[in-house]
Write a protein that binds this DNA or RNA. Structure first.
Lengths: 160, 160
DNA sequence: TATTGTTATACTCTATAACTATA
DNA sequence: TATAGTTATAGAGTATAACAATA
């Protein structure tokens, strides 16, 4: 029952998880491993930042507005890979909580310029302080140079 | 409008995406980059495997049952990081489409043993043929050794 | 007419509670 | 009583369509 094929003699990898299933096919599948890694980071994030009320999405939104004051919702959505209507809903909540504000552009009165309020700036500042220890914990199985390598490889796989 | 800070003189990285936002903070954030990479893989997957009707989830389910005939739903759920009720719903559909079958264990009649039908075995076999070119396309920006490195690093970050 | 932002809404994915049957 | 599987259902995340204001 629950046949477990023996690992090949060349298999030098880590400890076999909870059960002893043959998972070698999925271990060789980057998309699957990326999903597991991303889940790990997101679950860790919710634990670490829960006290501040930050989610991965709102953290990224705050960070982008901080570094690019006046950024329009459309640019924000495209960078975060969110659909505009879904982002708008989040922005509405962040605004009614007093973390961001919207200015109408004078050059093009359709356009919206997003800014952090002082309250929002403080929140992302507090969040930023948790970031380094959080990343360190998530990446703990890797050496410093491996951590840099992983980040470099991910950046090179992606359009920016 | 949409202030774009100059890249520091040490920044040797790639072309600045569609807009010219300062995204350096997020580029240094592994969790965010992992999310973007995973999105890229999943979107590519849907394009590539749409003709077969396979999703990332069903592909993984088929692959695990193929390599571990008789695996119980609970083990499958824990490996895939799905909640059991959500997996059950997928299994019900796969069974009524004739891709898998459930056997009651004789040793413990609560337990279920999952097996592929011939139809299911053929589907994952067809899917497996698309896998290598699909991965090659997704990982195209990386050299062969970088691709191996990425996979190795992801595996070492995760529990198995 | 085209574009930016917004609302409303549907759909998929994920999470929780409660039930059945076996042990 | 505890466990494996299942059902029902609620919630979060993601998608499309349509509209208002401005260009």
């Amino acid at each position: 029952m629950m046949s477990s094929k023996a690992r090949g003699p060349g298999a030098k990898s880590a400890q076999p998880s909870e059960t002893s299933l043959d998972l070698r096919a999925l271990q060789r599948t980057p998309g699957f491993m990326l999903r597991l890694a991303q889940l790990k980071f997101f679950e860790g994030f919710y634990e670490e930042f829960a006290a501040l009320g930050l989610t991965p999405a709102t953290y990224a939104i705050f960070a982008i507005i901080r570094d690019n004051p006046g950024v329009p919702p459309s640019s924000l959505a495209s960078v975060l890979r969110l659909r505009l209507p879904n982002l708008i809903k989040i922005l509405n909540e962040l605004q009614s909580s007093g973390f961001i504000k919207r200015n109408r552009s004078k050059a093009d009165r359709r356009a919206v310029e997003l800014m952090l309020t002082p309250k929002g700036a403080k929140l992302i500042q507090d969040g930023a302080r948790l970031t380094e220890p959080y990343n360190r914990k998530m990446l703990a199985p890797l050496s410093e140079s491996e951590q840099r390598m992983l980040l470099e490889l991910l950046n090179r796989m992606l359009p920016f």
